[in-house]
Amino acid sequence: MSDRFTKGMARNIYYGGSLFFILLFLALTFDTVIALPERENRAELTDSVAHGKEIWEENNCVGCHSIMGEGAYFAPELANVFERRGNANEAAFKAYLNAWMNAQPTQAPGRRQMPQFDLSDSEIDALADFLIWTSRIDDNDWPPNIEG
């Protein structure tokens, strides 16, 4: 084998493969940078959405829930909760989320319990704005089922 496969051949395969994968990486990075403005909704980012994200982080919601597949899978995915529970009606969703958050823990038998975070109505509205904003990101129809 050593008479057919020389050090020079190995070096050429190494450098050729490295160059190929570097160029592939650069092309995919460029494609992603070009596609991002069409998929995100940065223009709709408001102070209320940012405050909702802060509440999300302060209360470690990602410790149980996930958004667009990122986070824990202990509780439901929330990337599409606005469509699931609000039927694309912001006022209805905010009322639903407020009632849901204030009813916790439900003590329903056989169900995992969400803790009571004692959020104010304005904090729940900000959290709802964050979840509404998140639901409007083009995430390739994630999650794959409607119930998350």
Rank of each mutant, 00 (worst) to 15 (best):
N140D: 12
W133A: 01
A27K: 07
T32I: 13
K53E: 05
H65I: 00
I55D: 03
A91K: 11
F5V: 15
F30A: 15
A91T: 09
F74Q: 12
N89M: 10
P105C: 04
N87T: 09
L45E: 05
S66E: 02
A35T: 12
T29V: 15
R85C: 05
R111S: 14
K7V: 14
K53Q: 08
D3L: 14
F74N: 09
W56A: 02
D3Y: 15
N59A: 04
E147M: 07
D121E: 14
H51N: 11
S120G: 08
T106E: 09
L19F: 05
P144L: 09
E123T: 06
A103M: 06
A27F: 08
R85D: 03
F21N: 12
K53P: 04
T106C: 08
Y15D: 11
A108D: 15
M1G: 10
Y73M: 12
D118R: 14
N89Y: 11
D121W: 13
F93H: 02
A126N: 03
L78Q: 01
G110P: 06
I137T: 06
A27W: 07
Q104M: 12
A88C: 14
P115Q: 03
W56R: 01
D125I: 05
F74A: 13
N98L: 14
T106R: 07
V62C: 13
V49H: 01
I67F: 00
A126G: 05
L24E: 08
H51I: 06
P109R: 08
E77V: 00
L119V: 01
N102G: 06
T46F: 04
L19V: 06
V81G: 00
E40M: 14
Y73D: 10
H51Q: 13
Q116W: 09
M1H: 10
D3G: 13
L23T: 09
W100N: 01
A92W: 04
N41W: 03
E70H: 13
I55F: 04
E40Q: 15
F93I: 02
L119M: 03
I146K: 01
F5P: 10
W133H: 02
D47R: 09
G86K: 00
T32N: 15
